[in-house]
Design a protein around this nucleic acid. Structure first.
Length: 204
DNA sequence: CCACGGATTGGCT
DNA sequence: GCCAATCCGTGGA
């Protein structure tokens, strides 16, 4: 193992704070899933914030439904949804109960369990550098590589086999704050955050 | 009840 | 750069 084991798991309190503060702090942290006795891990390099109180692009904007109820459950769990008939996307739920805020994981830099992630996504263990770049540089790709699907919706990030490890904060100057991708509403909110010059970011 | 379209991806032009 | 693939939650009738 690497230095991963020296890092601490982020506690519930980390998630029960202000959405955008958490979004920026999530950059650089390590998203981990223990899956089939293998450690899968990637550094978070790109996220997007969604706030149903003011943001029409958020799934939670029109209030609680069966689909989005996890988003209203308070910080510290994983909100997974199915879209375009074929992809899953994973969000870190933030804030207080009934707030309806979450952070979409948009890109990870693969760190551990790369062969296992490659098998999940490409059906093979040996991949090229180009395939490694493409392993988790998109919200649907993350879920494919980490085998995250409907069953993982609502997973507690503080008590199970999916969690986030702490790491040094990324300096403000290293963080880009730009508009979000793939939405039709609230398109001008600069709520996409990524680590500047990181090759694993989905789109510059 | 039914039609619409989406927080995407990858392949083809 | 454009568009098909492929479900199903959601909202309007």
């Amino acid at each position: 193992m690497t230095t991963l084991s020296l890092q601490k798991k982020l506690p519930e309190k980390f998630y029960q704070r202000e959405l955008h503060k958490i979004a920026e702090e999530l950059l650089g942290k390590i998203f981990v899933r223990i899956y089939d006795e293998t450690i899968l891990a990637g550094r978070i390099v790109e996220v997007e914030a969604y706030d149903g109180r003011v943001d029409q692009a958020s799934h939670s904007f029109n209030g609680k439904t069966k689909r989005n109820e996890v988003m209203f459950g308070g910080g510290g769990s994983l909100y997974v949804y199915f879209t375009y008939g074929m992809h899953f996307c994973a969000n870190v739920v933030t804030g207080k109960v009934n707030e309806g805020t979450a952070i979409l994981l948009r890109a990870l830099e693969p760190l551990e369990g790369i062969e296992s992630m490659a098998m999940n996504r490409y059906g093979k263990t040996k991949i090229s550098e180009k395939e490694k770049i493409n392993l988790a540089n998109g919200p649907g790709k993350i879920c494919s590589a980490f085998a995250i699907a409907r069953e993982e919706n609502g997973t507690d990030l503080c008590g199970g086999e999916i969690f986030i490890l702490n790491s040094k904060k990324i300096k403000p100057g290293e963080i880009a704050e730009v508009t979000r991708i793939g939405i039709k509403k609230s398109v001008d909110l600069p709520w996409r955050y990524y680590i500047k010059n990181n090759p694993f970011v989905s789109k510059k």
